[in-house]
Simulated assay, not measured.
Amino acid sequence: MAGKFDAQQWVTDRIVAAIEAGTPPWRQPWTGTARGAVFPYRACGEAYRGINVILLWLEAWEKGYASRFWFTYRQAQALGGQVRKGEKSASVIKFGTFEKAGTAEEDDRRAIPFTKLYAVFNADQIDGLPEVYHRHPEAPRDLGTEPDRALEAFFAATGAVIVSSSDPRAYYDFKADRIHMPPIRTFHAMAGYYATLAHEATHWTGHASRLDRLAKFADRDAYAFEELVAELGNVMLCARLGLTPDFGQSAAYVESWLSALRNDKRLIFRAAAEAQKAVDFLLEAGGGVAQRSAA
């Protein structure tokens, strides 16, 4: 007999997998949507709510879907569409209740909550749908955002290998030991670029040849802990470099990982200690605090 479906663990695993693959779609201070990052809607035009928004964002992000619309197999057929052979569905969660007869001492019937998965397909997986259900990815836009010479010199001095391409993702590649960043000119603001770089650079410090932190954190909970370290490192390093951290976004990001770790608030202190070590390493390697000219 299959075990009871654990919706919370399933969602947590999906979010962790997305973070492992690069910056998730709800946290992107630059332009370009080669992968889906639009708010998901049902076939009827009703917006998804709650955790299903995150789940479909993740699916679109991983598979590169551009459309915001999702269909059950029957909904697609009703509109004259056909899911292409070999396409795999995404899973969303249905929350509901069913009534169960009570005992003589209880009320006649009582509502029992339940969760179950059901399958949906993105419009990009379906042939024959009206064009209104399709959307083309947004190309990265050159917003003219310029680099800061002092900050560029600082991160170069750390020794981190930083590469850039048209791939609209920011991530630290552990195996290659390098950081990938979208071009700075595609960012909405200079500060967003360096805050993102600070997050990835904190990950970079955990390599075995440096602080040897990443090898200690091999399981899912440990990866969530590493994300706490990286985000706290981002805030600490930005403050030291004269950038104003996005405390609201960082707080939400940190809170999401504390939740993934079952709200063990003590972890924030451990993560802060590891983040401080990472920032100290970057500051020492980068030759101290960058002296930026006034904007």
Score class of each variant (00 low, 15 high):
181 M>E: 04
157 A>F: 09
117 L>H: 01
234 N>L: 14
33 T>A: 08
226 E>Y: 14
138 E>K: 15
197 L>C: 03
31 T>H: 11
292 R>H: 04
48 Y>Q: 13
241 L>T: 12
167 D>W: 03
214 L>I: 15
195 A>F: 00
142 D>H: 07
108 D>N: 12
111 A>N: 11
4 K>Q: 15
58 L>T: 11
213 R>E: 13
248 G>H: 10
79 L>Y: 09
199 H>C: 03
113 P>C: 08
59 E>S: 13
38 V>S: 10
117 L>D: 05
175 K>W: 04
98 F>A: 03
285 A>M: 07
38 V>C: 05
265 K>N: 08
110 R>V: 04
202 T>G: 02
189 A>F: 14
178 R>G: 08
103 T>V: 07
294 A>Q: 10
290 A>G: 11
62 E>T: 12
253 Y>D: 12
145 T>I: 13
116 K>V: 03
150 A>L: 02
213 R>P: 04
74 R>H: 15
228 L>Q: 11
24 P>N: 10
224 A>M: 04
158 T>I: 12
237 L>W: 10
186 T>N: 06
83 V>I: 13
290 A>P: 13
145 T>H: 02
1 M>N: 11
220 R>W: 01
282 L>M: 14
20 E>F: 01
66 A>V: 09
37 A>D: 08
118 Y>P: 05
279 V>M: 06
139 A>L: 14
84 R>L: 01
34 A>Q: 13
174 F>Q: 13
40 P>G: 05
167 D>R: 03
171 Y>G: 00
258 L>C: 14
41 Y>W: 12
58 L>F: 06
264 D>Q: 14
285 A>F: 04
11 V>P: 02
157 A>H: 06
211 L>E: 08
238 C>V: 01
123 A>V: 04
126 I>L: 12
53 V>L: 08
66 A>E: 01
122 N>F: 05
139 A>K: 06
105 E>D: 15
134 H>W: 11
167 D>L: 09
82 Q>Y: 05
11 V>Y: 00
154 F>V: 01
30 W>M: 13
150 A>N: 05
200 E>L: 09
280 D>Q: 13
26 W>N: 06
284 E>K: 15
129 L>Y: 07
151 L>A: 07
73 Y>R: 15
39 F>I: 03
204 W>Y: 15
28 Q>Y: 01
40 P>H: 14
256 S>T: 09
252 A>R: 09
211 L>G: 04
196 T>M: 11
95 F>T: 08
183 P>A: 06
256 S>N: 04
198 A>R: 14
1 M>E: 07
81 G>P: 09
112 I>Q: 14
289 V>E: 14
223 Y>W: 10
154 F>M: 04
182 P>L: 06
134 H>N: 02
182 P>K: 09
68 R>P: 02
201 A>Q: 10
135 R>F: 02
242 G>E: 00
90 A>D: 00
275 A>C: 03
65 Y>Q: 11
196 T>A: 12
40 P>E: 01
125 Q>V: 05
22 G>T: 15
17 A>C: 05
134 H>L: 12
29 P>L: 10
290 A>T: 05
245 P>S: 06
67 S>T: 11
128 G>E: 10
203 H>E: 01
134 H>R: 15
166 S>F: 05
16 V>C: 06
157 A>C: 09
128 G>S: 05
74 R>T: 13
275 A>Q: 02
188 H>I: 06
229 V>C: 02
145 T>L: 08
